[in-house]
């Protein structure tokens, strides 16, 4: 319980910072981690990307197409796709992030059981598809059918939560750039996910990271793919509009 005490104490003594520009995740990395993120020969996340390419090409069943069977070469067809997620699925009216869109495709087009959130295959395929948008600017839509999801996500971001009674915005808007123990608080954009996190020794999803945030402020941890995190993901993506996709990023 040492973290909450220090966290609360730190936030008490810090004056509120003025709203500044939202900076990309890589700006908050040490030079060593930034170099690792940019060096594909060392970046462990590339192992997941490589696995994702395998899954992309794999025929799921005799009479069912592989991802490549419909979409062809991902380098062309998937370029920029991840920058537009989460988006509202026209048929169902649901908000889908990249993971859930892949699962939908797998179930409806390939007739296969879902991989399952945070499964190795889904992480790998998501990382592979997101990788095709690396360095492209985020461009989610928040108008029309997306508007209610966006509003809910924005409200979630500013709502005080948990035993520490902290809103996302208190760390990631008001105190971004300041130190919290050995960390520099980032703007909390999700553009690096799925990311290779040193703490995990593995690639994990944005929702896994959000669950750690929720636990950090002693709030409810929502399920993977839950509406609460999906709405928040949309708000985070809009907040990062114009910033480059970094997935698979390296994070601490």
């Amino acid at each position: 319980m040492r973290l909450p005490a220090s966290l609360a104490a730190l936030l008490l003594i810090l004056p509120a910072a003025t709203a500044a520009e939202i900076r990309p995740g890589r700006d908050f990395l040490s030079p060593e981690l930034r170099a690792l993120q940019e060096d594909e020969a060392r970046h462990p996340g590339m192992l997941w990307v490589e696995q994702g390419e395998e899954v992309w090409r794999r025929t799921p069943a005799l009479d069912k197409p592989s991802c490549a069977g419909c979409h062809g070469d991902a380098a062309g067809t998937m370029r920029g796709v991840a920058t537009r997620y989460p988006m509202v699925d026209r048929a169902s009216g649901r908000l889908l992030n990249l993971e859930l869109r892949i699962e939908q495709c797998r179930m409806e087009r390939q007739g296969q059981p879902a991989f399952g959130y945070e499964s190795p295959e889904l992480l790998a395929l998501t990382a592979y598809i997101a990788y095709q948008s690396r360095s492209l600017p985020m461009t989610v839509r928040i108008d029309g059918a997306a508007a209610p999801f966006f509003d809910a996500g924005r409200a979630f971001f500013h709502e005080r939560q948990g035993q520490l009674n902290l809103a996302c915005s208190q760390c990631h808007d008001d105190n971004a750039g300041r130190r919290l123990r050995g960390d520099v608080i980032s703007n909390g954009v999700g553009t690096g996910f799925p990311a290779y996190r040193l703490e995990w020794n593995a690639v994990g999803s944005l929702h896994r990271r959000l669950r750690a945030c929720s636990l950090g402020v002693r709030a409810v941890q929502f399920d993977y793919g839950s509406p609460d995190y999906l709405n928040l993901e949309l708000y985070l993506a809009w907040r990062a509009r114009g910033l480059p996709m970094e997935a698979p990023a390296v994070r601490r």
Binding site: L3, P4, S6, L7, L180, R181, G182, D183, E199, W200, R211, A212, C213, L215, G216, R218, R252
Partner: peptide, 10 residues
């Protein structure tokens, strides 16, 4: 080796 503030264990 520095300590991270935000770990999965909370």
């Amino acid at each position: 080796v520095t300590l991270s503030a935000c770990v999965d264990g909370g």
